[in-house]
Amino acid sequence: MLPEQAAAEALADPALEAGAPDAPDASAGAQADAAIARLYGEPVLQLPNDLYIPPDALEVFLDAFEGPLDLLLYLIRRQNFNILDIPMAQVTLQYLEYVEQIRQTNLELAAEYLLMAAMLIEIKSRMLLPKRHDDLVEEVGDPRAELVRRLLDYEQMKLAAQELASVPQEGRDFWRPTLLIEQGAGPAFPDVDPWDLQRAWMDVMRRAKLTQHHKISRQELSVREHMSAILRTLQSSRFIEFTELFNGQASVPVVVVHFVAMLELAKETLIEITQAEPFAPIYVRLAYSPA
């Protein structure tokens, strides 16, 4: 912001507006012309005698800039100047006025801006020099080219920084929620190498070659026949231990059928299966039938 513009904005009051009101008669128009300001819609013809303005009351607050390039870019963009064709005289004058303002309050900060001011004056002086049309002297380009390049690079980085600043940052704009969960020790898996799987597969194939084939024949067994055999065995003795009933049974199918036959006899209450206590011997006898 320029000092003259900032001072004008600071002195302006929404309730105090200078101007001449439109009046229907000549006397109102004359008062409006003589008014120095308007207060709540009424013209003020003269300043109050007891009006006191402290020396520090009208302090001008200028925009904060990140550096000389930021100030220079602000002056160019605010007035819609073509950055490729900068009016150096006007921009340099406005820049120096701002430097004069900050020099009165912060001399160390003004030193950085004075360096850019010297560069602007140098560019302006080079532009004022007459052009030499000499074949032996190489033609010099636009003195503003280097400044324009720096301004464009700075503007590009500034826009990128603004876009990054708008992105939410963890720890600054938000915090990631954390939840502590107690977990036990996971299962320890063995360290298996692919070659171990290959060796296991080769071992399975080697054992498959050693397996001999056998023929399974069909055997017809009768549960009724085994039930009759059990009854004949129990008729000759009072008690028979459970394991003794399976003596002489050669194969597994025969043992299974013999056991099923014994269960069928117990189901039909033809035999009794008793045991005195757990893990004691099991005895089988014929069921008692009254005479």
Rank of each mutant, 00 (worst) to 15 (best):
A26T: 05
F81V: 05
S289F: 12
D33P: 00
V60Q: 11
E138R: 05
A64G: 05
L2D: 14
A261L: 03
L120M: 04
E9K: 14
R150L: 09
P194C: 04
L93T: 11
R38M: 11
A261G: 11
Y74E: 07
Q31E: 15
Q162I: 10
L147F: 05
I36N: 00
L58F: 07
A160M: 15
A229Y: 03
P14E: 08
P24D: 14
L263Q: 15
I282F: 01
L47G: 04
G171E: 02
E241T: 06
E182T: 03
T233I: 04
L47D: 02
S289N: 09
P194L: 09
I121T: 06
E122W: 01
L39T: 01
Y95S: 07
E170Q: 13
D153W: 00
S228K: 11
A57I: 01
Y98C: 02
R149D: 12
E182F: 04
I271F: 09
M262H: 01
M88E: 00
R150C: 02
I102P: 09
Q212H: 15
N82M: 02
P21F: 11
L151F: 03
K124N: 14
M205V: 10
F242A: 04
V204M: 09
R38K: 06
P190E: 12
F239C: 03
V255E: 03
L114E: 15
E112S: 13
M202F: 05
A30K: 14
Q94C: 11
V99C: 12
P68E: 09
D63I: 02
A57S: 11
M157C: 05
Y40K: 14
A23E: 13
A280L: 00
F239E: 13
P21G: 07
R103I: 08
A160E: 15
D142L: 01
L159D: 15
L159T: 15
V99N: 05
D142Y: 03
T211H: 07
R224G: 00
M202I: 06
E268K: 07
L231V: 08
L58C: 04
Y74R: 07
P43W: 10
A145N: 08
A89I: 04
M1P: 11
D33L: 13
A28N: 14
V167Y: 08
V167G: 00
A12M: 10
F259Y: 13
L231A: 02
R149F: 02
G171R: 10
V167F: 05
I240Q: 10
H213I: 07
T243L: 07
V254R: 10
D173S: 08
R176V: 13
S125M: 07
T178D: 09
L128K: 13
E66F: 04
E108Y: 02
Q235S: 12
Y288C: 03
I86G: 01
V256I: 15
H258Q: 12
Q31R: 11
Q31I: 14
H133S: 06
L96G: 06
E277C: 01
N80E: 10
A287G: 02
N49Y: 10
A8G: 02
I121S: 05
I181S: 07
V254H: 12
N49H: 10
V256H: 03
L115V: 14
V252F: 05
